[in-house]
């Protein structure tokens, strides 16, 4: 793991900005993509996230982190939020926030879990559930840049109906040369958890020295990262982002 993950440190304060919901798209019955207009958005790298702050009438406020799903494109950013049962913030973002409503956010944050369009190593993306969000930003940035870096995505979801961006992923695989997508379903008939076989068949041989990005709930990320290291990938090439709570 290199110490200087990002050359040139961020300077100046990351200011809170007011974002407004422009439109929302349903991804699954329990998740939706929020298209936000953030004036003066400085741009971001795929993999980065924002901190969202919600404030109630009585002044109470709370913050959560959300990965950016879209490739950098002017003042628009997209987040995709999975509703967590009895959650404080995600149910509001999935069901309460209406077009025109404001939320505050600041970012982009995070300089390690990022893919740059100038990177040339083959890329393996491994997503568990809503962990697809920052990885989709990478797939989209690759396309936007016309990059030919070979990408493989392994996407573990509960069922076919829980897949985010399903239609777009179908199109990307059809139209974007050098992008492959494999699915693992945990709750379909014969469903199972991701295993070493999935990763060695649908991933890259370690000899290719791929850059690996793994994102999802803690247990999923632990399992996949351990498998990647056991398959011979250098730990510093395995970048992880853990979203969820932990059972451990």
């Amino acid at each position: 793991m290199a110490r200087a993950a990002v050359p040139g440190r961020l300077t100046g304060r990351l200011a809170w900005r007011t974002a407004r919901l422009v439109e929302a798209r349903e991804e699954t019955p329990t998740a939706r993509t929020l298209v936000l207009d953030v004036s003066g958005w400085p741009g971001h790298l795929p993999g980065q996230h924002v901190d969202v702050r919600l404030t109630a009438e009585d002044g109470y406020s709370t913050q959560r982190s959300y990965s950016i799903a879209s490739a950098a494109q002017g003042d628009r950013i997209e987040l995709t939020v999975q509703r967590v049962p009895a959650g404080e913030v995600s149910p509001y973002l999935v069901e309460g926030l209406s077009p025109g409503y404001p939320v505050e956010l600041r970012g982009p944050v995070g300089g390690w879990f990022v893919w740059r369009t100038t990177d040339t190593a083959p890329v393996l993306l491994v997503a568990g559930g809503s962990g697809i969000v920052p990885l989709m930003a990478m797939v989209r940035a690759r396309r936007a840049a016309g990059s030919r870096v070979p990408f493989r995505l392994i996407y573990s979801a509960r069922t076919k109906n829980d897949v985010f961006y399903a239609e777009e992923l179908r199109k990307r695989v059809r139209d974007d040369a050098g992008l492959d997508v494999a699915y693992v379903f945990t709750r379909e008939e014969h469903g199972r958890r991701i295993n070493v076989n999935d990763i060695s068949t649908a991933g890259w041989p370690a000899d290719f020295q791929p850059d690996c990005f793994v994102c999802g709930p803690t247990g999923f990320v632990e399992t996949v990262a351990d498998i990647l290291v056991a398959l011979g990938n250098e730990p510093r090439r395995v970048k992880t982002e853990r979203f969820g709570p932990t059972g451990a």
Partner: peptide, 22 residues
């Protein structure tokens, strides 16, 4: 105070614990 997001209520507040901001 931050900008209010209409309809956001948050969890029931307990005055008992004070956490760092955010």
């Amino acid at each position: 105070m931050g900008i209010v997001s209409p309809g956001f209520q948050g969890k029931p507040r307990s005055a008992a614990v004070t956490l760092p901001p955010g």
